Simulated assay, not measured.
Amino acid sequence: MNDKTDTRTQILEAAMNRIVHYGYGKTTMSEIAGDCGMSAGNIYRFFASKIDIAEAMARKFNTELYQAYAEIARSDDPAPARLRAFFEYGLTHTYDAIEKDAKILEVAEVLRDERPLFFNEGLAQERIYLMQILEDGMEAGTFAPMQDPGFISEMIQSALMKFRFPQLYSLLTQEKLKRELNGVLDILIAGLKHGVEITVETKR
C-alpha cells in the first residue's frame, strides 16, 4: 500500500468515525481534515467533495457484500436455496450495519438522491450473481427455461427492493421483514419453477 492509498484510507476512517458520531449533514471537510492532522485544502487532493467520501465509504461496504454474494452464487446448494440466501444475506447485512451505526442511513439517503448512477451500478453488479443462480437453476432443471435471465433478475430486484435497503423503505423490524421476504420469495420461486412469460410491453 503506497502513501497515497494510506492517506485515502486514513481519510475514510476519520470520515466514518465522525459521520457515525455526528451525522453526514453535520460533518464538514475541514473537520475530517483536522481529524487526519492535515489542512482542509490538502484533503481535496484526495476527495473532491464530501459526497465523494460518502461514495467511497459505500463502495467499501459493497465490496464486502459482493464477496458474500459471489460465494453464495458459486455454492453447491440448489438454486432456490441460493436465491433465498442471497436476499436474506443482503437484508441482514444492511439492516445490521444501519442498526449498529444509525447515522449511516443518512449517507445512504444522500447517495440515493445525489448519486443515482452509483446505486444503479451496484444493482447491475448484483444482477451478475443473480443471473448465475438463475442459469444454474435452469441447467439443473430446477427452474423452467427463461429467454432473458438478465431481465428476470432485474424484475426480481425490483420486487425485493424493500428488503435490499430495508431502513430506506420500511420501519418494520428485521424479523417482520424476514417474514415478508420469505413469503415473497416463496411466490417468486414457485413462478420460476413453473415458468415466466415475458410480454413485449413489459420489457419496454
Rank of each mutant, 00 (worst) to 15 (best):
K4P: 00
K4V: 06
T5S: 14
D6N: 07
T9G: 13
Q10T: 14
I11A: 13
L12R: 14
L12G: 13
E13W: 00
A14F: 04
M16C: 04
I19E: 07
I19N: 05
V20I: 13
G23S: 08
G23C: 08
G23D: 04
G23Q: 07
Y24E: 02
G25K: 05
G25N: 13
G25L: 05
T27N: 06
M29F: 07
M29N: 07
M29V: 03
E31Q: 10
I32M: 10
A33V: 04
A33M: 06
A33F: 06
G34Q: 14
D35M: 12
D35Y: 04
G37Y: 11
G37H: 12
S39F: 01
A40R: 15
N42G: 11
N42T: 15
I43Y: 11
I43F: 11
Y44A: 09
R45Y: 15
F46N: 12
F46A: 08
F47W: 04
F47N: 08
F47V: 02
S49H: 11
K50H: 10
K50W: 07
I51V: 15
I51H: 10
D52A: 15
I53E: 08
I53R: 14
A54Y: 05
E55D: 13
A56S: 15
A58Q: 09
A58V: 02
A58W: 06
R59D: 13
K60G: 14
T63Y: 10
E64M: 04
Y66A: 01
Y66M: 07
Q67T: 11
A68H: 10
Y69N: 04
A70Y: 04
A70M: 06
I72V: 11
I72K: 01
S75L: 07
S75I: 03
S75H: 05
D76K: 12
D76C: 03
D77M: 12
P80G: 02
L83Y: 04
L83K: 03
L83E: 03
R84H: 03
A85V: 00
A85C: 02
F86H: 05
F87H: 10
E88M: 02
Y89K: 02
Y89C: 01
G90R: 08
L91W: 01
L91R: 02
L91T: 03
L91V: 03
T92D: 15
D96R: 09
D96K: 08
A97V: 02
I98R: 01
I98W: 02
D101F: 15
A102F: 11
A102W: 08
K103G: 10
I104W: 08
I104K: 14
E106A: 14
V107T: 15
A108P: 00
E109I: 12
E109P: 00
L111A: 10
L111F: 06
D113P: 00
R115G: 03
P116C: 09
P116I: 07
L117P: 00
F118L: 12
F118Y: 13
F119K: 06
F119P: 00
N120K: 12
N120W: 04
G122K: 06
L123R: 09
A124K: 10
Q125S: 11
Q125K: 12
R127F: 04
R127G: 04
I128Y: 07
Y129Q: 07
M131Y: 00
M131C: 13
I133C: 09
I133A: 10
L134C: 08
E135N: 13
D136F: 02
G137Y: 06
M138G: 05
T142Q: 12
F143T: 04
F143I: 01
F143K: 03
A144S: 15
P145H: 07
P145W: 06
M146F: 02
